[in-house]
Design a protein around this nucleic acid. Sequence first.
DNA 1: GTGTTACTTGCACACTGTTACAGACGGACT
DNA 2: AGTCCGTCTGTAACAGTGTGCAAGTAACAC
Lengths: 258, 258
Amino acid sequence: MKRSQEATVEGTGRRAGLDRADVVLAALRLVETEGADALTMRNLAGRLEVTTTTIYWHVGGRDELITELIRYQSEIQAARPIEGETPHERVVSLARHIWESARENRAITSLAHQNGATSLLERPLEIALVHELQVAGVTGAAAAEAHRAILATVGGLLIQALRDESIIPANRRSEALWADTDPELGLDAATIDALAQPADLDALFESTINAVVAHILAKPEPVKRRSRPAAAKAAGPAKNKTKRARKSTTKRTTKSNG
Amino acid sequence: MKRSQEATVEGTGRRAGLDRADVVLAALRLVETEGADALTMRNLAGRLEVTTTTIYWHVGGRDELITELIRYQSEIQAARPIEGETPHERVVSLARHIWESARENRAITSLAHQNGATSLLERPLEIALVHELQVAGVTGAAAAEAHRAILATVGGLLIQALRDESIIPANRRSEALWADTDPELGLDAATIDALAQPADLDALFESTINAVVAHILAKPEPVKRRSRPAAAKAAGPAKNKTKRARKSTTKRTTKSNG
DNA sequence: GTGTTACTTGCACACTGTTACAGACGGACT
DNA sequence: AGTCCGTCTGTAACAGTGTGCAAGTAACAC
Protein backbone atom coordinates (compact mmCIF):
# COMPACT_ATOMS: atom_id res chain seq x y z
CA MET A 1 0.00 0.00 0.00
CA LYS A 2 1.49 3.26 -0.97
CA ARG A 3 -1.38 5.76 -0.77
CA SER A 4 0.52 9.01 -1.19
CA GLN A 5 -0.87 10.64 1.91
CA GLU A 6 -3.79 9.93 4.09
CA ALA A 7 -4.84 13.33 2.86
CA THR A 8 -8.14 14.83 3.79
CA VAL A 9 -10.44 13.29 6.27
CA GLU A 10 -13.78 12.62 4.72
CA GLY A 11 -16.36 13.84 2.28
CA THR A 12 -16.89 13.30 -1.41
CA GLY A 13 -13.95 15.40 -2.42
CA ARG A 14 -11.25 13.78 -0.34
CA ARG A 15 -8.39 11.97 -1.99
CA ALA A 16 -8.11 8.44 -0.88
CA GLY A 17 -4.91 8.15 -2.86
CA LEU A 18 -6.00 4.89 -4.33
CA ASP A 19 -4.65 3.23 -7.40
CA ARG A 20 -6.11 0.50 -9.53
CA ALA A 21 -3.18 -1.67 -8.50
CA ASP A 22 -3.80 -0.80 -4.86
CA VAL A 23 -7.30 -2.14 -5.07
CA VAL A 24 -6.23 -5.33 -6.79
CA LEU A 25 -3.46 -5.87 -4.28
CA ALA A 26 -5.75 -5.25 -1.36
CA ALA A 27 -8.18 -7.75 -2.81
CA LEU A 28 -5.38 -10.28 -3.10
CA ARG A 29 -4.39 -9.80 0.51
CA LEU A 30 -7.99 -10.03 1.55
CA VAL A 31 -8.44 -13.35 -0.21
CA GLU A 32 -5.20 -14.70 1.17
CA THR A 33 -5.98 -13.81 4.74
CA GLU A 34 -9.70 -14.38 4.95
CA GLY A 35 -10.50 -16.76 2.14
CA ALA A 36 -12.23 -16.51 -1.19
CA ASP A 37 -15.66 -15.92 0.26
CA ALA A 38 -14.46 -12.85 2.10
CA LEU A 39 -13.93 -11.03 -1.17
CA THR A 40 -17.04 -8.89 -1.25
CA MET A 41 -17.11 -5.37 -2.55
CA ARG A 42 -18.19 -3.93 0.77
CA ASN A 43 -15.60 -5.91 2.64
CA LEU A 44 -12.85 -4.76 0.33
CA ALA A 45 -14.07 -1.20 0.45
CA GLY A 46 -14.12 -1.26 4.22
CA ARG A 47 -10.60 -2.59 4.30
CA LEU A 48 -9.49 0.33 2.13
CA GLU A 49 -11.60 2.75 4.10
CA VAL A 50 -13.63 3.87 1.13
CA THR A 51 -17.08 3.07 -0.18
CA THR A 52 -17.90 0.45 -2.75
CA THR A 53 -18.47 3.05 -5.42
CA THR A 54 -14.80 3.96 -5.26
CA ILE A 55 -13.87 0.37 -5.90
CA TYR A 56 -16.16 0.31 -8.87
CA TRP A 57 -14.64 3.48 -10.22
CA HIS A 58 -11.17 1.99 -10.08
CA VAL A 59 -11.65 -1.55 -11.23
CA GLY A 60 -15.02 -1.54 -12.93
CA GLY A 61 -16.74 -4.47 -11.27
CA ARG A 62 -16.24 -7.68 -9.40
CA ASP A 63 -15.54 -9.74 -12.46
CA GLU A 64 -12.90 -7.40 -13.74
CA LEU A 65 -11.34 -7.25 -10.31
CA ILE A 66 -11.10 -11.01 -10.11
CA THR A 67 -9.71 -11.28 -13.60
CA GLU A 68 -6.95 -8.84 -12.82
CA LEU A 69 -6.28 -10.42 -9.46
CA ILE A 70 -5.94 -13.86 -10.98
CA ARG A 71 -3.80 -12.59 -13.79
CA TYR A 72 -1.47 -10.94 -11.33
CA GLN A 73 -1.23 -14.06 -9.22
CA SER A 74 -0.62 -16.23 -12.27
CA GLU A 75 2.58 -14.38 -13.01
CA ILE A 76 3.83 -14.97 -9.52
CA GLN A 77 3.16 -18.66 -9.77
CA ALA A 78 5.07 -18.91 -13.03
CA ALA A 79 8.40 -18.38 -11.32
CA ARG A 80 9.42 -21.95 -10.68
CA PRO A 81 12.31 -23.76 -12.28
CA ILE A 82 11.59 -26.90 -14.23
CA GLU A 83 13.55 -29.84 -12.97
CA GLY A 84 14.55 -33.10 -14.54
CA GLU A 85 16.47 -34.35 -17.54
CA THR A 86 14.16 -36.60 -19.48
CA PRO A 87 10.98 -35.27 -21.10
CA HIS A 88 8.97 -37.37 -18.69
CA GLU A 89 10.64 -35.86 -15.69
CA ARG A 90 10.27 -32.33 -16.96
CA VAL A 91 6.62 -32.70 -17.84
CA VAL A 92 5.91 -34.20 -14.45
CA SER A 93 7.87 -31.40 -12.85
CA LEU A 94 5.63 -28.86 -14.54
CA ALA A 95 2.50 -30.66 -13.51
CA ARG A 96 3.87 -30.66 -10.00
CA HIS A 97 4.34 -26.91 -10.19
CA ILE A 98 0.68 -26.46 -10.98
CA TRP A 99 -0.22 -28.81 -8.19
CA GLU A 100 2.00 -27.21 -5.60
CA SER A 101 1.31 -23.60 -6.40
CA ALA A 102 -2.39 -24.35 -6.25
CA ARG A 103 -2.05 -26.03 -2.88
CA GLU A 104 0.11 -23.25 -1.53
CA ASN A 105 -2.43 -20.66 -2.59
CA ARG A 106 -5.63 -22.45 -1.78
CA ALA A 107 -7.76 -19.38 -1.35
CA ILE A 108 -6.86 -17.83 -4.67
CA THR A 109 -7.13 -21.16 -6.42
CA SER A 110 -10.52 -21.57 -4.87
CA LEU A 111 -11.54 -18.12 -5.98
CA ALA A 112 -10.40 -18.80 -9.51
CA HIS A 113 -12.22 -22.08 -9.55
CA GLN A 114 -15.48 -20.58 -8.33
CA ASN A 115 -15.34 -17.96 -11.02
CA GLY A 116 -14.25 -20.11 -13.90
CA ALA A 117 -10.85 -18.47 -14.07
CA THR A 118 -8.75 -21.55 -13.45
CA SER A 119 -7.39 -21.49 -16.97
CA LEU A 120 -6.34 -17.91 -16.43
CA LEU A 121 -4.58 -18.68 -13.19
CA GLU A 122 -2.64 -21.59 -14.58
CA ARG A 123 -2.02 -19.98 -17.90
CA PRO A 124 1.77 -19.32 -17.69
CA LEU A 125 2.37 -22.82 -16.43
CA GLU A 126 0.12 -24.19 -19.14
CA ILE A 127 2.17 -22.40 -21.75
CA ALA A 128 5.32 -23.85 -20.29
CA LEU A 129 3.70 -27.27 -20.36
CA VAL A 130 2.88 -26.98 -24.04
CA HIS A 131 6.43 -25.91 -24.66
CA GLU A 132 7.83 -28.86 -22.76
CA LEU A 133 5.59 -31.25 -24.63
CA GLN A 134 6.80 -29.72 -27.84
CA VAL A 135 10.41 -30.30 -26.85
CA ALA A 136 9.47 -33.86 -26.11
CA GLY A 137 8.26 -34.15 -29.69
CA VAL A 138 4.55 -33.98 -29.00
CA THR A 139 2.74 -31.40 -31.12
CA GLY A 140 -0.56 -30.70 -32.82
CA ALA A 141 -3.67 -32.57 -31.84
CA ALA A 142 -1.67 -35.06 -29.81
CA ALA A 143 -0.19 -32.23 -27.78
CA ALA A 144 -3.60 -30.75 -27.14
CA GLU A 145 -4.87 -34.11 -25.95
CA ALA A 146 -1.83 -34.66 -23.76
CA HIS A 147 -2.11 -31.17 -22.36
CA ARG A 148 -5.73 -31.59 -21.47
CA ALA A 149 -5.22 -35.00 -19.96
CA ILE A 150 -2.55 -33.65 -17.65
CA LEU A 151 -4.59 -30.65 -16.65
CA ALA A 152 -7.62 -32.79 -15.99
CA THR A 153 -5.63 -35.10 -13.77
CA VAL A 154 -4.15 -32.25 -11.77
CA GLY A 155 -7.49 -30.49 -11.63
CA GLY A 156 -9.30 -33.56 -10.43
CA LEU A 157 -6.92 -34.07 -7.57
CA LEU A 158 -7.09 -30.40 -6.85
CA ILE A 159 -10.79 -30.32 -6.26
CA GLN A 160 -10.35 -33.13 -3.81
CA ALA A 161 -7.69 -31.11 -2.05
CA LEU A 162 -9.75 -27.94 -2.02
CA ARG A 163 -12.75 -29.78 -0.67
CA ASP A 164 -10.85 -30.37 2.53
CA GLU A 165 -10.45 -26.72 3.37
CA SER A 166 -13.88 -25.75 2.13
CA ILE A 167 -16.65 -25.48 4.64
CA ILE A 168 -18.61 -28.52 3.59
CA PRO A 169 -21.14 -29.95 5.99
CA ALA A 170 -19.75 -33.08 7.53
CA ASN A 171 -22.46 -35.33 6.18
CA ARG A 172 -21.40 -34.61 2.63
CA ARG A 173 -17.69 -35.16 2.97
CA SER A 174 -16.43 -38.26 1.33
CA GLU A 175 -14.59 -39.67 4.31
CA ALA A 176 -17.63 -39.24 6.51
CA LEU A 177 -19.77 -41.05 3.99
CA TRP A 178 -17.42 -43.99 3.98
CA ALA A 179 -17.22 -44.08 7.72
CA ASP A 180 -20.97 -44.42 7.64
CA THR A 181 -21.15 -47.17 5.09
CA ASP A 182 -23.61 -49.95 5.63
CA PRO A 183 -21.59 -53.07 6.52
CA GLU A 184 -24.25 -55.18 4.88
CA LEU A 185 -22.95 -54.21 1.47
CA GLY A 186 -20.24 -56.80 1.62
CA LEU A 187 -17.39 -54.42 1.09
CA ASP A 188 -13.98 -55.20 2.50
CA ALA A 189 -13.64 -53.65 5.93
CA ALA A 190 -10.03 -52.62 5.44
CA THR A 191 -10.95 -50.84 2.22
CA ILE A 192 -13.77 -48.94 3.86
CA ASP A 193 -11.51 -47.99 6.68
CA ALA A 194 -8.88 -46.73 4.29
CA LEU A 195 -11.49 -44.69 2.48
CA ALA A 196 -12.68 -43.18 5.72
CA GLN A 197 -9.21 -41.90 6.45
CA PRO A 198 -7.96 -38.64 4.97
CA ALA A 199 -6.08 -39.26 1.76
CA ASP A 200 -2.40 -38.69 1.16
CA LEU A 201 -3.03 -36.50 -1.84
CA ASP A 202 0.60 -35.76 -2.57
CA ALA A 203 1.39 -39.42 -2.92
CA LEU A 204 -1.73 -39.89 -5.00
CA PHE A 205 -0.66 -37.05 -7.22
CA GLU A 206 2.79 -38.50 -7.85
CA SER A 207 1.43 -41.89 -8.62
CA THR A 208 -1.35 -40.80 -10.93
CA ILE A 209 0.47 -38.09 -12.81
CA ASN A 210 3.34 -40.43 -13.55
CA ALA A 211 0.98 -42.96 -15.02
CA VAL A 212 -0.76 -40.39 -17.17
CA VAL A 213 2.44 -38.80 -18.43
CA ALA A 214 3.97 -42.15 -19.18
CA HIS A 215 0.88 -43.07 -21.16
CA ILE A 216 1.02 -39.83 -23.07
CA LEU A 217 4.66 -39.92 -23.98
CA ALA A 218 4.47 -43.55 -25.00
CA LYS A 219 1.63 -42.99 -27.40
CA PRO A 220 2.56 -42.66 -31.08
CA GLU A 221 1.38 -39.53 -32.78
CA PRO A 222 -2.02 -39.94 -34.44
CA VAL A 223 -1.70 -40.01 -38.21
CA LYS A 224 -5.05 -38.58 -39.18
CA ARG A 225 -4.64 -34.84 -39.19
CA ARG A 226 -7.59 -32.53 -39.36
CA SER A 227 -6.93 -30.02 -42.09
CA ARG A 228 -8.02 -26.84 -40.46
CA PRO A 229 -6.70 -23.53 -41.77
CA ALA A 230 -5.84 -21.96 -38.44
CA ALA A 231 -7.02 -19.08 -36.38
CA ALA A 232 -9.21 -16.49 -37.96
CA LYS A 233 -10.24 -15.37 -34.53
CA ALA A 234 -6.97 -13.84 -33.46
CA ALA A 235 -7.58 -10.84 -35.70
CA GLY A 236 -11.06 -10.07 -34.43
CA PRO A 237 -12.12 -7.00 -32.46
CA ALA A 238 -10.92 -6.88 -28.89
CA LYS A 239 -14.05 -7.74 -27.00
CA ASN A 240 -16.17 -4.82 -26.01
CA LYS A 241 -15.09 -2.61 -23.20
CA THR A 242 -12.05 -2.46 -21.07
CA LYS A 243 -12.05 1.09 -19.81
CA ARG A 244 -8.38 1.12 -19.02
CA ALA A 245 -6.15 -0.59 -21.49
CA ARG A 246 -4.59 -2.79 -18.87
CA LYS A 247 -1.39 -1.05 -17.97
CA SER A 248 0.86 -3.34 -16.01
CA THR A 249 4.42 -3.84 -17.03
CA THR A 250 3.85 -7.54 -17.34
CA LYS A 251 6.63 -8.74 -19.62
CA ARG A 252 7.11 -12.12 -18.16
CA THR A 253 10.60 -13.41 -17.88
CA THR A 254 9.71 -16.46 -19.91
CA LYS A 255 12.09 -18.50 -17.92
CA SER A 256 10.64 -21.70 -19.11
CA ASN A 257 10.64 -21.37 -22.83
CA GLY A 258 12.61 -19.76 -25.55
CA MET B 1 -46.86 -33.50 -8.68
CA LYS B 2 -49.79 -35.00 -6.96
CA ARG B 3 -51.19 -32.22 -4.79
CA SER B 4 -54.36 -33.82 -3.54
CA GLN B 5 -56.60 -30.99 -4.57
CA GLU B 6 -55.98 -27.43 -5.50
CA ALA B 7 -58.08 -26.90 -2.43
CA THR B 8 -58.84 -23.52 -1.05
CA VAL B 9 -57.93 -20.35 -2.81
CA GLU B 10 -55.67 -18.25 -0.69
CA GLY B 11 -54.89 -17.02 2.76
CA THR B 12 -52.86 -18.40 5.61
CA GLY B 13 -55.22 -21.24 6.23
CA ARG B 14 -55.44 -22.69 2.78
CA ARG B 15 -54.07 -26.13 2.05
CA ALA B 16 -51.53 -26.13 -0.70
CA GLY B 17 -51.48 -29.89 -0.56
CA LEU B 18 -47.73 -29.96 -0.59
CA ASP B 19 -45.53 -32.79 0.42
CA ARG B 20 -41.86 -32.85 1.31
CA ALA B 21 -41.28 -35.05 -1.73
CA ASP B 22 -43.27 -32.63 -3.86
CA VAL B 23 -40.94 -29.83 -2.97
CA VAL B 24 -37.83 -31.88 -3.64
CA LEU B 25 -39.21 -33.07 -6.94
CA ALA B 26 -40.17 -29.57 -7.99
CA ALA B 27 -36.67 -28.43 -7.12
CA LEU B 28 -35.24 -31.20 -9.26
CA ARG B 29 -37.37 -30.19 -12.20
CA LEU B 30 -36.44 -26.59 -11.70
CA VAL B 31 -32.74 -27.38 -11.78
CA GLU B 32 -33.13 -29.58 -14.81
CA THR B 33 -35.02 -27.04 -16.83
CA GLU B 34 -33.46 -23.77 -15.77
CA GLY B 35 -30.06 -24.72 -14.45
CA ALA B 36 -28.44 -24.88 -11.05
CA ASP B 37 -28.42 -21.13 -10.50
CA ALA B 38 -32.18 -20.98 -10.90
CA LEU B 39 -32.65 -22.92 -7.69
CA THR B 40 -33.52 -20.11 -5.34
CA MET B 41 -36.04 -20.40 -2.60
CA ARG B 42 -38.26 -17.69 -4.02
CA ASN B 43 -38.04 -19.15 -7.48
CA LEU B 44 -39.00 -22.57 -6.23
CA ALA B 45 -41.78 -21.15 -4.09
CA GLY B 46 -43.15 -19.25 -7.04
CA ARG B 47 -43.13 -22.36 -9.15
CA LEU B 48 -45.17 -24.14 -6.49
CA GLU B 49 -47.40 -21.11 -5.99
CA VAL B 50 -46.59 -20.77 -2.34
CA THR B 51 -44.32 -18.52 -0.32
CA THR B 52 -40.81 -19.32 0.75
CA THR B 53 -41.92 -19.93 4.30
CA THR B 54 -43.85 -22.95 3.14
CA ILE B 55 -40.75 -24.34 1.49
CA TYR B 56 -38.83 -23.84 4.70
CA TRP B 57 -41.47 -25.56 6.68
CA HIS B 58 -41.39 -28.62 4.47
CA VAL B 59 -37.70 -29.09 3.81
CA GLY B 60 -36.01 -27.04 6.47
CA GLY B 61 -33.58 -24.97 4.46
CA ARG B 62 -31.65 -24.75 1.24
CA ASP B 63 -28.90 -27.07 2.32
CA GLU B 64 -31.25 -29.77 3.41
CA LEU B 65 -33.20 -29.41 0.20
CA ILE B 66 -30.10 -29.84 -1.89
CA THR B 67 -28.93 -32.80 0.12
CA GLU B 68 -32.22 -34.56 -0.36
CA LEU B 69 -32.37 -33.62 -4.02
CA ILE B 70 -28.90 -34.97 -4.68
CA ARG B 71 -29.57 -38.12 -2.72
CA TYR B 72 -32.69 -38.74 -4.75
CA GLN B 73 -30.89 -38.18 -8.01
CA SER B 74 -28.01 -40.40 -6.97
CA GLU B 75 -30.31 -43.38 -6.76
CA ILE B 76 -31.57 -42.78 -10.26
CA GLN B 77 -28.07 -42.63 -11.62
CA ALA B 78 -27.15 -45.89 -9.97
CA ALA B 79 -29.32 -47.89 -12.32
CA ARG B 80 -26.80 -48.74 -15.00
CA PRO B 81 -25.52 -52.18 -15.84
CA ILE B 82 -21.81 -52.81 -15.58
CA GLU B 83 -20.39 -54.14 -18.80
CA GLY B 84 -17.27 -56.07 -19.63
CA GLU B 85 -15.60 -59.32 -18.73
CA THR B 86 -12.19 -58.49 -17.43
CA PRO B 87 -11.70 -56.47 -14.26
CA HIS B 88 -10.21 -53.71 -16.34
CA GLU B 89 -13.23 -53.49 -18.57
CA ARG B 90 -15.64 -53.52 -15.70
CA VAL B 91 -13.83 -50.85 -13.74
CA VAL B 92 -13.65 -48.66 -16.82
CA SER B 93 -17.32 -49.33 -17.43
CA LEU B 94 -18.14 -48.03 -13.98
CA ALA B 95 -16.02 -44.96 -14.42
CA ARG B 96 -17.85 -44.37 -17.67
CA HIS B 97 -21.14 -44.58 -15.83
CA ILE B 98 -20.07 -41.77 -13.55
CA TRP B 99 -18.85 -39.79 -16.51
CA GLU B 100 -21.95 -40.27 -18.61
CA SER B 101 -24.53 -39.77 -15.92
CA ALA B 102 -22.80 -36.57 -14.94
CA ARG B 103 -22.76 -35.32 -18.50
CA GLU B 104 -26.37 -36.26 -19.02
CA ASN B 105 -27.41 -34.38 -15.91
CA ARG B 106 -25.16 -31.39 -16.15
CA ALA B 107 -27.30 -29.06 -14.13
CA ILE B 108 -27.63 -31.36 -11.16
CA THR B 109 -23.98 -32.29 -11.34
CA SER B 110 -23.16 -28.62 -11.40
CA LEU B 111 -25.40 -28.01 -8.42
CA ALA B 112 -23.78 -30.81 -6.49
CA HIS B 113 -20.36 -29.54 -7.35
CA GLN B 114 -21.12 -26.00 -6.25
CA ASN B 115 -22.40 -27.24 -2.94
CA GLY B 116 -19.75 -29.80 -2.21
CA ALA B 117 -22.16 -32.67 -2.63
CA THR B 118 -20.38 -34.44 -5.46
CA SER B 119 -19.47 -37.36 -3.25
CA LEU B 120 -23.10 -37.68 -2.32
CA LEU B 121 -24.29 -37.65 -5.89
CA GLU B 122 -21.83 -40.27 -7.03
CA ARG B 123 -22.13 -42.36 -3.92
CA PRO B 124 -23.92 -45.45 -5.28
CA LEU B 125 -21.60 -45.62 -8.22
CA GLU B 126 -18.64 -45.17 -5.93
CA ILE B 127 -19.78 -48.07 -3.84
CA ALA B 128 -20.10 -50.17 -6.96
CA LEU B 129 -16.61 -49.12 -7.93
CA VAL B 130 -15.17 -50.22 -4.62
CA HIS B 131 -16.96 -53.50 -5.01
CA GLU B 132 -15.60 -54.02 -8.50
CA LEU B 133 -12.09 -53.23 -7.38
CA GLN B 134 -12.52 -55.73 -4.61
CA VAL B 135 -13.55 -58.40 -7.09
CA ALA B 136 -10.46 -57.52 -9.07
CA GLY B 137 -8.41 -58.28 -5.99
CA VAL B 138 -7.68 -54.73 -4.95
CA THR B 139 -8.48 -54.03 -1.32
CA GLY B 140 -7.37 -51.98 1.65
CA ALA B 141 -5.16 -48.96 1.21
CA ALA B 142 -4.45 -49.89 -2.40
CA ALA B 143 -8.16 -49.90 -3.14
CA ALA B 144 -8.61 -46.52 -1.54
CA GLU B 145 -5.80 -45.12 -3.62
CA ALA B 146 -7.15 -46.68 -6.79
CA HIS B 147 -10.63 -45.44 -6.03
CA ARG B 148 -9.46 -41.91 -5.48
CA ALA B 149 -7.29 -41.90 -8.56
CA ILE B 150 -10.20 -42.93 -10.72
CA LEU B 151 -12.56 -40.40 -9.19
CA ALA B 152 -10.01 -37.65 -9.55
CA THR B 153 -9.52 -38.45 -13.21
CA VAL B 154 -13.23 -38.49 -13.91
CA GLY B 155 -13.75 -35.39 -11.82
CA GLY B 156 -11.01 -33.48 -13.56
CA LEU B 157 -12.45 -34.17 -16.96
CA LEU B 158 -15.86 -33.34 -15.62
CA ILE B 159 -15.00 -29.83 -14.56
CA GLN B 160 -13.68 -29.25 -18.04
CA ALA B 161 -16.95 -30.49 -19.45
CA LEU B 162 -19.05 -28.42 -17.07
CA ARG B 163 -17.07 -25.32 -17.85
CA ASP B 164 -18.43 -25.42 -21.36
CA GLU B 165 -22.04 -25.03 -20.35
CA SER B 166 -21.31 -22.62 -17.56
CA ILE B 167 -21.68 -18.95 -18.28
CA ILE B 168 -18.04 -18.06 -18.16
CA PRO B 169 -16.94 -14.79 -19.73
CA ALA B 170 -15.31 -15.49 -23.04
CA ASN B 171 -11.98 -14.03 -22.05
CA ARG B 172 -11.53 -16.67 -19.38
CA ARG B 173 -12.35 -19.73 -21.40
CA SER B 174 -9.41 -21.90 -22.17
CA GLU B 175 -9.96 -22.12 -25.90
CA ALA B 176 -10.25 -18.37 -26.17
CA LEU B 177 -7.02 -17.93 -24.27
CA TRP B 178 -5.21 -20.21 -26.66
CA ALA B 179 -6.69 -18.53 -29.68
CA ASP B 180 -5.21 -15.36 -28.29
CA THR B 181 -1.75 -16.70 -27.62
CA ASP B 182 1.20 -14.54 -28.47
CA PRO B 183 2.87 -16.15 -31.50
CA GLU B 184 6.21 -14.83 -30.27
CA LEU B 185 6.33 -17.55 -27.67
CA GLY B 186 7.66 -20.02 -30.17
CA LEU B 187 4.94 -22.56 -29.67
CA ASP B 188 3.95 -24.87 -32.47
CA ALA B 189 1.15 -23.33 -34.49
CA ALA B 190 -0.67 -26.60 -35.01
CA THR B 191 -0.64 -27.24 -31.27
CA ILE B 192 -2.04 -23.82 -30.48
CA ASP B 193 -4.69 -24.29 -33.08
CA ALA B 194 -5.66 -27.64 -31.64
CA LEU B 195 -5.88 -26.13 -28.19
CA ALA B 196 -8.09 -23.34 -29.47
CA GLN B 197 -10.59 -25.86 -30.74
CA PRO B 198 -13.19 -27.41 -28.48
CA ALA B 199 -11.96 -30.68 -27.08
CA ASP B 200 -13.37 -34.09 -27.76
CA LEU B 201 -13.87 -34.88 -24.12
CA ASP B 202 -15.37 -38.31 -24.64
CA ALA B 203 -12.30 -39.47 -26.50
CA LEU B 204 -10.11 -37.85 -23.90
CA PHE B 205 -12.00 -39.64 -21.19
CA GLU B 206 -11.58 -43.05 -22.79
CA SER B 207 -7.91 -42.55 -23.36
CA THR B 208 -7.09 -41.20 -19.92
CA ILE B 209 -9.25 -43.48 -17.84
CA ASN B 210 -7.84 -46.53 -19.59
CA ALA B 211 -4.33 -45.44 -18.79
CA VAL B 212 -5.15 -44.80 -15.16
CA VAL B 213 -7.02 -48.04 -14.66
CA ALA B 214 -4.30 -50.01 -16.38
CA HIS B 215 -1.79 -48.43 -14.09
CA ILE B 216 -3.85 -49.24 -11.04
CA LEU B 217 -4.55 -52.85 -11.86
CA ALA B 218 -0.97 -53.49 -12.89
CA LYS B 219 0.43 -52.20 -9.66
CA PRO B 220 1.39 -54.88 -7.17
CA GLU B 221 -0.08 -54.48 -3.77
CA PRO B 222 2.16 -52.29 -1.63
CA VAL B 223 4.23 -54.49 0.64
CA LYS B 224 4.90 -51.95 3.32
CA ARG B 225 1.77 -52.13 5.27
CA ARG B 226 1.03 -49.41 7.73
CA SER B 227 0.33 -51.24 10.92
CA ARG B 228 -3.15 -50.02 11.33
CA PRO B 229 -5.37 -52.36 13.31
CA ALA B 230 -8.23 -51.79 10.94
CA ALA B 231 -11.75 -50.76 11.52
CA ALA B 232 -12.30 -49.60 15.00
CA LYS B 233 -14.52 -46.97 13.59
CA ALA B 234 -16.83 -49.16 11.60
CA ALA B 235 -18.39 -50.44 14.75
CA GLY B 236 -18.42 -47.16 16.60
CA PRO B 237 -21.28 -44.77 17.05
CA ALA B 238 -22.09 -43.17 13.72
CA LYS B 239 -20.70 -39.73 14.45
CA ASN B 240 -23.13 -37.40 16.01
CA LYS B 241 -25.20 -37.19 12.89
CA THR B 242 -28.33 -35.29 13.60
CA LYS B 243 -30.01 -35.35 10.25
CA ARG B 244 -33.47 -34.80 11.53
CA ALA B 245 -32.99 -33.78 15.08
CA ARG B 246 -32.77 -30.08 14.61
CA LYS B 247 -35.97 -28.23 14.36
CA SER B 248 -37.06 -25.51 16.65
CA THR B 249 -40.46 -26.35 17.98
CA THR B 250 -42.55 -28.40 15.65
CA LYS B 251 -41.60 -31.96 14.96
CA ARG B 252 -41.79 -32.78 11.32
CA THR B 253 -43.55 -35.85 10.18
CA THR B 254 -40.48 -37.81 9.12
CA LYS B 255 -42.38 -39.06 6.17
CA SER B 256 -39.32 -40.06 4.21
CA ASN B 257 -39.02 -43.76 4.63
CA GLY B 258 -36.75 -45.38 7.11
C1' DG C 1 -11.89 34.27 -10.87
C1' DT C 2 -14.14 30.20 -14.07
C1' DG C 3 -14.23 25.66 -15.93
C1' DT C 4 -12.94 20.85 -16.31
C1' DT C 5 -11.39 16.58 -14.80
C1' DA C 6 -10.68 13.10 -11.25
C1' DC C 7 -12.24 11.01 -7.85
C1' DT C 8 -15.49 9.98 -3.65
C1' DT C 9 -19.80 9.57 -1.34
C1' DG C 10 -24.82 8.54 -0.28
C1' DC C 11 -28.59 6.28 -1.56
C1' DA C 12 -31.17 3.22 -3.88
C1' DC C 13 -32.48 -1.15 -6.45
C1' DA C 14 -33.02 -5.98 -7.09
C1' DC C 15 -31.50 -9.93 -5.57
C1' DT C 16 -30.16 -13.80 -2.12
C1' DG C 17 -31.19 -17.13 2.37
C1' DT C 18 -33.61 -17.01 6.60
C1' DT C 19 -36.71 -16.11 10.49
C1' DA C 20 -40.27 -14.12 13.92
C1' DC C 21 -44.88 -13.65 14.01
C1' DA C 22 -49.51 -14.19 13.04
C1' DG C 23 -53.03 -16.03 10.97
C1' DA C 24 -56.55 -19.95 9.46
C1' DC C 25 -58.06 -24.66 8.81
C1' DG C 26 -59.12 -29.36 10.69
C1' DG C 27 -59.50 -32.66 13.98
C1' DA C 28 -59.50 -34.21 19.00
C1' DC C 29 -60.97 -33.64 23.49
C1' DT C 30 -64.21 -32.02 27.18
C1' DA D 1 -71.31 -27.19 21.85
C1' DG D 2 -66.96 -25.11 23.01
C1' DT D 3 -62.14 -25.32 23.47
C1' DC D 4 -57.58 -26.58 22.38
C1' DC D 5 -53.79 -27.70 19.52
C1' DG D 6 -51.07 -29.26 15.80
C1' DT D 7 -50.48 -28.39 10.91
C1' DC D 8 -49.70 -25.71 7.60
C1' DT D 9 -49.51 -20.88 5.06
C1' DG D 10 -48.78 -15.90 4.61
C1' DT D 11 -46.73 -11.06 5.80
C1' DA D 12 -43.03 -8.63 6.74
C1' DA D 13 -38.74 -8.07 7.98
C1' DC D 14 -33.39 -8.62 8.52
C1' DA D 15 -28.79 -8.90 6.90
C1' DG D 16 -26.30 -9.80 3.27
C1' DT D 17 -24.81 -9.63 -1.92
C1' DG D 18 -23.43 -6.91 -6.66
C1' DT D 19 -24.39 -2.71 -9.00
C1' DG D 20 -25.87 2.04 -10.90
C1' DC D 21 -27.35 6.96 -10.49
C1' DA D 22 -26.87 11.61 -9.05
C1' DA D 23 -24.40 14.69 -6.47
C1' DG D 24 -20.64 16.52 -4.29
C1' DT D 25 -15.78 18.32 -3.58
C1' DA D 26 -10.73 18.66 -4.36
C1' DA D 27 -7.19 19.60 -7.49
C1' DC D 28 -5.77 21.38 -11.57
C1' DA D 29 -5.87 24.40 -16.08
C1' DC D 30 -6.81 28.63 -17.67
